[in-house]
Simulated assay, not measured.
Amino acid sequence: MLSSGDPTERPFPVVRPEVWETYGPADLSAVPVFAGGFINFGYWEAVDLGQSLSQGDRIRSEQDLYRHVLDAVAPEGGRAVEVGCGLGLGCALALEEYGPAAVTGVDIHPQQLQRAREANSPLLATQPHRLTFALGAAEDLPLGDAEFDCLYSVEAAQHFPDLTAFAREAARVLGPGGRVAVTSFFTVEGAPEPAKRLAGLLDSFASGLDIARPVSRLTDALTEAGFADVRVASIGPQVWPGWDRWLARLWAPGTWPRNFLAAWEQQILDYYLVTATRP
């Protein structure tokens, strides 16, 4: 593992084929269900689900998921890094609303980073010292030791092949007192045969794009990496019903995307926010 942060010294990160296709040629950010390009399921607490949903509601839910995570890491005045930044719209939101000194967006897919630079070209032109993007894997970040005050990741950890390596890298790049916040979907603790059941319900698990693991796999990895005050909270009630209401505009009942709600109701899958502090 390199710690210099010099990308010229690092090998090109290995990208799993399912991830390469979905976030490269298929360009998931352009799919209508991800209106606004944030590529997350959304945090719907502030949206009235009893009314007809608009594209504005959908974008608000995606932004609010970022706000929920950023509230947990408190980036004001510090240096922040987002792992799995996609189009970098969350990086821009952090800069505009939370006042960090700088934000670095890391993504494993070169096509995503190219899109991120295009989407954020005005910010990159006017504030190049505050926003940067880097190619790298969650398990081998192209960043220096103790370089950041907070690290966050929004709906990307379900793709990370090695959560233990990710936790070690998070500990390495954060300085003392640094905060980490990860939000994503994981299997419910104690659910019988979760991988098999999820593969039967959801194409994203059947294809290998999403990896079925309990949330304790991440919390244990953070603890083993030396993090303290490791906490996990379910935010499923704020995610799954709204996500399904939005999917209902585009997908009929019985189609596989609608099974995310079913997986939650059957207590196989849930959505979590995991936080921790580097001593």
Score class of each variant (00 low, 15 high):
residue 121 S to P: 08
residue 139 E to K: 06
residue 191 A to V: 07
residue 205 F to S: 01
residue 59 I to H: 00
residue 66 Y to T: 11
residue 201 L to H: 12
residue 246 W to G: 02
residue 132 T to I: 06
residue 240 W to S: 13
residue 241 P to L: 10
residue 110 P to A: 13
residue 238 Q to D: 14
residue 106 V to H: 00
residue 75 P to W: 08
residue 102 A to T: 11
residue 25 P to R: 13
residue 192 P to S: 03
residue 48 D to M: 00
residue 84 G to R: 09
residue 158 Q to Y: 13
residue 239 V to S: 03
residue 220 D to L: 15
residue 55 Q to Y: 11
residue 9 E to A: 14
residue 197 R to K: 07
residue 98 Y to T: 05
residue 254 G to V: 13
residue 159 H to W: 01
residue 191 A to F: 11
residue 207 S to M: 02
residue 78 G to Q: 08
residue 24 G to W: 08
residue 96 E to W: 15
residue 176 P to A: 10
residue 109 H to A: 00
residue 136 G to T: 12
residue 32 P to Q: 05
residue 166 F to Q: 10
residue 169 E to S: 04
residue 17 P to D: 02
residue 220 D to P: 00
residue 81 V to L: 09
residue 32 P to W: 08
residue 79 R to S: 09
residue 272 Y to W: 15
residue 197 R to S: 01
residue 186 F to V: 06
residue 277 T to V: 15
residue 10 R to W: 08
residue 64 D to W: 12
residue 186 F to E: 00
residue 118 E to C: 09
residue 113 L to G: 08
residue 250 L to I: 15
residue 94 A to Y: 10
residue 149 D to H: 10
residue 132 T to G: 03
residue 47 V to I: 13
residue 18 E to C: 10
residue 167 A to N: 02
residue 75 P to G: 04
residue 226 G to D: 09
residue 41 F to D: 01
residue 209 L to F: 07
residue 38 F to E: 04
residue 90 G to V: 08
residue 141 L to H: 08
residue 69 V to S: 04
residue 59 I to Y: 02
residue 168 R to S: 05
residue 41 F to L: 14
residue 263 A to Y: 13
residue 81 V to I: 13
residue 130 R to P: 00
residue 178 G to D: 11
residue 135 L to Y: 04
residue 207 S to Q: 14
residue 97 E to A: 14
residue 56 G to L: 01
residue 32 P to Y: 05
residue 63 Q to V: 15
residue 129 H to S: 14
residue 40 N to E: 02
residue 153 S to E: 07
residue 15 V to C: 11
residue 105 G to A: 03
residue 253 P to R: 03
residue 241 P to D: 05
residue 113 L to V: 05
residue 87 L to H: 07
residue 245 R to I: 03
residue 57 D to W: 02
residue 202 L to N: 01
residue 200 G to M: 11
residue 279 P to R: 11
residue 98 Y to E: 09
residue 216 S to M: 09
residue 215 V to Y: 01
residue 7 P to I: 03
residue 73 V to L: 09
residue 108 I to R: 09
residue 85 C to K: 05
residue 159 H to S: 10
residue 252 A to T: 12
residue 49 L to P: 07
residue 201 L to V: 02
residue 205 F to W: 08
residue 4 S to A: 10
residue 127 Q to M: 15
residue 136 G to D: 06
residue 75 P to E: 08
residue 168 R to M: 12
residue 253 P to S: 00
residue 93 L to S: 00
residue 138 A to S: 06
residue 201 L to A: 00
residue 155 E to V: 08
residue 270 D to H: 14
residue 92 A to M: 04
residue 88 G to V: 01
residue 238 Q to M: 14
residue 57 D to E: 02
residue 100 P to H: 04
residue 56 G to N: 09
residue 89 L to I: 07
residue 11 P to E: 06
residue 104 T to Y: 02
residue 176 P to E: 00
residue 123 L to F: 03
residue 173 V to A: 01
residue 278 R to E: 01
residue 70 L to N: 12
residue 167 A to S: 07
residue 36 G to P: 01
residue 188 V to T: 12
residue 213 R to T: 04
residue 122 P to D: 07
residue 77 G to K: 11
residue 90 G to C: 01
residue 41 F to P: 06
